[in-house]
Design a protein around this nucleic acid. Structure first.
Lengths: 183, 183
DNA sequence: TCCAAAATAGACCGATTGGTCTAATTCCTC
DNA sequence: GAGGAATTAGACCAATCGGTCTATTTTGGA
């Protein structure tokens, strides 16, 4: 499909930021990858790099939301859904190249110290956890446990991704299911 | 106590890198904080920023090793030790200011793409996990479970720290014990 | 077809980056 | 105290940073 210039920039930025973080990527690199001139970037993102980063993070957030929904959609049990989720993310981890970090935190934690960045990261994380909790409840988890299960999954995934990154091994993410659901 | 110039530089670098990551900190800032001139930096760290980062990461690694040992030293059970460990880190998180990331990953993941950086991160992480596993075994965990418990603690902590950072709340780390040891 | 708005194009800017190099100074040993 | 090594001091460098600005081209509705 044909992406608009704005979308091209946001996608390229998201990918690059995930690899080397906010400060590790220069605008020149984003422009080189997209083949667009600087004028376009500042036309679509008047506030420059910070605007671009916020849009890239929002993009990553929507993508993660989509993955969560897809993973739990056809699941028979919460455990099934969570496992599918882990496998989808392991695949994503491998596709991205084995050096990338969590989209949101790589972009938002290192960004300019404006408070917006940190607030967004909390907002996105909480949205993911709530979404998982909803799915957990739908799949029969007791209401008072669903939220705790969702937080456990999020926290385990976040930490597991980091370990996977260090070891350069997507299976670390797949094997998280053994930590979450001991047999 | 009086720190050598080399130590001053490494400590300052470790702190700054944890706040804003490898690329987010300029050498000028490290020099300003320490009050040392550029000549000193390149005398003690001939390869400049990357040398400094490796030393800062090594410093953080030794510090984490020390904290793990202290936490489990007087523990009666593995659960006690793990809880003490979480509380110590929550305290550390709060002392550092509520924006800092995992010492090692902030420094090593974003660093220059030389493979040394990534290798070191895997080495340090595995060392922590092994150390925890040893303590778990010493405190009566079955040998075949000790390693799994250690990985669970590491992964949970790593993810929990990220969530704590987003929410700016050290209690997130303290409450990880409820995820690890449901009552 | 025409015209205004949207978008692209890229030269240019000051500031800062990591890094080099030489001189001055401090420190330790004989 | 003399001499040599270790360290400090900071001027200087090319390259890159994020950002601004003006001109040109493309586009879409009247």
């Amino acid at each position: 499909m044909e992406l608009s210039s704005r979308e091209k920039l946001a996608w390229a930025a998201a990918k690059l930021f995930q690899e080397r973080g906010y400060h590790g990527v220069g605008l020149s690199e984003v422009l080189k990858v997209t083949g667009l001139p600087k004028g376009s970037l500042y036309h679509h993102f008047p506030n420059g790099k910070s605007d671009l980063a916020l849009e890239a993070a929002a993009l990553a957030h929507r993508e993660m939301t989509r993955i969560i929904e897809e993973a739990f959609q056809d699941a028979k049990t919460y455990q099934d859904g969570a496992t599918t989720f882990l496998f989808k993310l392991a695949k994503l981890f491998e596709i991205m190249g084995k050096y990338t970090g969590c989209p949101v935190s790589e972009i938002l934690f290192a960004g300019p110290d404006e408070d917006v960045f940190r607030q967004k990261s909390a907002e996105y994380f909480d949205a993911w956890i709530s979404l998982i909790a909803t799915q957990a409840e739908r799949l029969g988890q007791p209401a008072d446990l669903a939220r705790a299960e969702a937080e456990r999954l999020f926290v385990t995934l976040q930490g597991g991704w980091t370990l996977a990154r260090a070891r350069q091994d997507g299976d670390v993410i797949r094997n998280l299911r053994l930590l979450l659901f001991p047999t």
